[in-house]
């Protein structure tokens, strides 16, 4: 037994060996993909259903509140959401919220959606990109204010500097009264959205978020404050499956399964080492 323990022990450069193994397994998982069946979670299904069931002609505030570091987790959800919205006839207000890189993410996702950059319809009439606004919750609160927060909080201009007076879509959008659904890609746990959109104004909320924030987001979904949620790349892949357009999330998940097995292996090895060490400490041979 002790020989086995010594064999699996990695005394020097332990972290480097682990990094190397993870990267090797990741490369292997892409060159030899193992596609495990993907079951759609209730939260993902609720996210999809809420968008599909929304009557035509409603106004959706779609926030891209994530940055390039979260692209792997949320890029797929963002593109899949755009693909889904294309099939509907709603007005889409795309906002980076308080994410400095949000504008870049919007541009990237619009370019990668099915049908290309202008697939959502005519700019300024069917959809618009709103500018970045600093301040997180104070900015959201200002946006929702009556009588004209959606204009004044954003300096009366869109992302490209065009006056909102020249954008027909903004004629009917002034405050919280004109928003029928908030979809937030990257919500930092959804607390901000629930506090500033859901609780004070009753706006239905959908959130796609990274796995780190899932524990908080799940709480809001369970208590009904958020209608549905996408969990990281796995949830994004489920949404791609529901829409029927496989994208970057589906390919990411193919590699994820094998890596999880590796992590489980590390946990098992670590525990065996720990228990063996404790056994030796107590005088076992």
């Amino acid at each position: 037994m002790s020989d086995v323990i010594k064999f699996i022990r990695i005394p020097k450069n332990q972290s480097k060996v682990i990094y190397a193994l993870i990267i090797i397994v990741m490369i292997f998982s892409y060159t030899n993909p193992i596609l495990l069946p993907l079951n759609v979670d209730l939260e993902t299904q609720a996210y999809y259903n809420t968008i599909v069931d929304l009557p035509a002609g409603k106004t959706i505030l779609l926030a891209f509140a994530f940055d390039s570091g979260q692209w792997g987790a949320l890029g797929g959800a963002a593109i899949a959401t755009l693909n889904l919205l294309q099939t509907k006839n709603d007005k889409i207000l795309i906002s980076p919220f308080s994410s400095v890189e949000g504008g870049l993410m919007i541009q990237r996702c619009l370019g990668l959606q099915k049908g290309g950059y202008n697939a959502l319809g005519k700019y300024g009439v069917d959809w618009v990109i709103l500018p970045y606004g600093p301040g997180d919750e104070t900015f959201y609160a200002a946006m929702m204010q009556e009588p004209n927060g959606m204009h004044t909080a954003q300096g009366n201009k869109d992302y490209f500097g065009t006056n909102m007076e020249n954008l027909p879509i903004m004629d009917n959008v002034h405050s919280h009264k004109d928003i029928d659904l908030l979809i937030c890609i990257g919500g930092a746990g959804a607390g901000h959205q629930v506090r500033q959109f859901g609780v004070p104004y009753g706006i239905p909320i959908l959130v796609a978020d990274i796995a780190v924030d899932w524990a908080e987001l799940k709480m809001f979904i369970d208590n009904g404050a958020v209608k549905g949620g996408i969990k990281d790349a796995v949830g994004s892949a489920e949404l791609e499956k529901l829409i029927g357009i496989p994208g970057i999330a589906t390919s990411t998940v193919a590699g994820l399964s094998l890596n999880h097995l590796l992590i489980i292996g590390f946990i098992v090895v670590g525990n065996i080492q720990y228990l063996y060490g404790r056994y030796k400490k107590r005088g076992g041979k």
């Binding site: 979260q70 987790a73 990274i210 780190v212 990281d232 790349a233 994820l256």
Partner: peptide, 10 residues
């Protein structure tokens, strides 16, 4: 861990 792995995988 899942989240960080996803970032590296992509």
């Amino acid at each position: 861990v899942l989240g960080r792995e996803t970032v590296l995988l992509e």
